[in-house]
């Protein structure tokens, strides 16, 4: 009886066999760490608790892992409440992550910080693009799209990023 109870608890807390690569875990951790260094133009100064909407493409393991990070991130706690949504279900996105080139989802990303999983992903509004350099995960920031979207990125983030003026060729 005890065995059945423990098995039930364990299985209810353990979802179907889904794994996420270490590289994707790092990207998820970076994604969460970007937020304190970005200011959105639609952020009302007198309403700092306006929720921030993060939109992800349909990718179950990444989605699940990122939601967990959001729930357990303790320090520094984001100033704004974070909502994570599937891009296909979202009506507004402040930060959007693409792991594959989108189709028909572009209208949602206006004013959003668009982060691409790699340069192999194509999205014209991309503002941050992950890449690998000398076995380390790095990111580049596309200044032209930053200026166009009106967002502000702190100098601390810019210091460790590779700065490009336009989206590089894939």
């Amino acid at each position: 009886m005890l065995l059945i109870l423990v098995l039930s608890i364990a299985f209810s807390a353990t979802s179907a066999d889904s794994t996420i690569s270490k590289l994707d875990k790092l990207k998820a951790a970076y994604l969460l760490n970007f937020i304190p260094f970005i200011e959105w133009p639609n952020t009302p100064e007198d309403k700092p608790l306006t929720p921030l909407y993060i939109c992800l493409q349909d990718s179950a393991p990444f989605d699940q892992f990122f939601r967990t990070l959001v729930n357990i991130k303790s320090e520094p706690k984001p100033k704004r409440e974070l909502y994570v949504a599937r891009l296909s279900d979202a009506t507004h996105c402040d930060l959007t992550y693409f792991h594959r080139s989108p189709s028909g989802e572009n209208s949602l990303v206006e004013g959003s910080v668009v982060v691409l999983s790699s340069a192999q992903v194509s999205q014209k509004d991309a503002t941050i693009i992950f890449y690998l350099d000398n076995e380390k995960l790095r990111f580049e920031i596309v200044m032209s799209n930053i200026k166009r979207s009106g967002i502000t990125i702190s100098s601390e983030l810019l210091k460790i990023a590779k700065i490009t003026q336009r989206i590089p060729e894939a």
């Binding site: 270490k22 590289l23 790092l26 951790a29 990070l69």
Partner: peptide, 28 residues
């Protein structure tokens, strides 16, 4: 460094210093 809590507590500096090769080795 595969649990969500471990990744959640990593700072931007921690992430920047991490070699993806080391991370991948620890997993795959």
């Amino acid at each position: 460094q595969s649990t969500p809590s471990e990744f959640a507590e990593m700072s931007l500096t921690d992430l920047f210093a991490m070699s993806i090769n080391d991370v991948e080795k620890s997993a795959a």
